[in-house]
Amino acid sequence: MESTAVGTLLSSGRVRSEIWNRARLGFIFPRTGRTSARFDIDIFGTGDESDFFIRSLYVRRRFERLHLTLGRQPISWAFGSLVNPVDFSLGAEIAGAERSGKFTNAAELYIPLGWGSGISASGALSPHTEDIRGALRVRTGLRGFDAAANFVHEPDGVIPGRKETLNRAGISLKGDLGPLGIYGAIGGIWEENLNGTPGVTGVAGADYSLTVSGYRQIYLQCEYVSLPGVIAGDILGADETSPRRGEDMIASSVNYSPDEFTSLGVLAFVFTGSGDALLSPYAETDLGDNLLFTVRLGWISGESLPIFGRTVFEDGIKTAEGILQVSLEYSF
């Protein structure tokens, strides 16, 4: 259960405030032999309005050599980056925050190969057309690195506002270089009829953690993301009204735990060309008895708002300059 008070500072100087309430329910079904099922639903409300969102409703059958998952399910190819330009659904996760695009009605076939390798084939129904997004992914361990290669065929209309049928291919790697964690991905995007200009996207980053004074933990992560115009907005999870310009970005995260219960951090995203930026400091503390208290600020400069969540309009113009969220979450 989560209750969040949100205050949005508009460029006119006005502050819009709302209360969001969310109940996330997960139903655990007993596993019968080789078959398992899962049902997760979010019920949320703002003021007098309420709605629901089904995160997963699927059946998984484990056959001798392959696993089949049918139904609504999250499909993500996260590999540890803040921005993943080679994901199954672009923009499905930014800095660990999920978007609705991650949850899809799909069939997934998974063939495990050894302990760390596997092949998955996915077909996902588009919510907007009758077309199917098809994908193939191979994941394996490669000299201590977690490596994956994938291909996605994305028919026109799968992404609202996009008219082209796109093919995407990418590889990702994550491993260690001495005391550093390093990762990277590179992907190619091209239109099916090859009329448009192909784009190349990628990310390269590193993470590091250290303990100060014997118990205070610091975690650092920084990455460079290349965002070609053809697909930049999609990679950042922007909506169809957002500008689709090609501009590279530096994304970084610093997290500091002063004690066992509290976490302070800052997420920063800066576009290298325009200097547009978003800075999001946050504080999270475990109050005990399964209560988690979070305060998150968002300061926005320029037009990069869609990266970070809700688009706020005032008289038809995108205007938000800052967001303050205060949440209380109870798990049971």
Partner: peptide
């Protein structure tokens, strides 16, 4: 579990709490 993501954790994290 919520995201059903499987991510390799960097080696340096083994020394963290």
């Amino acid at each position: 579990p919520d995201a059903e993501d499987i991510v390799r954790i960097s080696g340096h994290m083994l020394n963290q709490g």
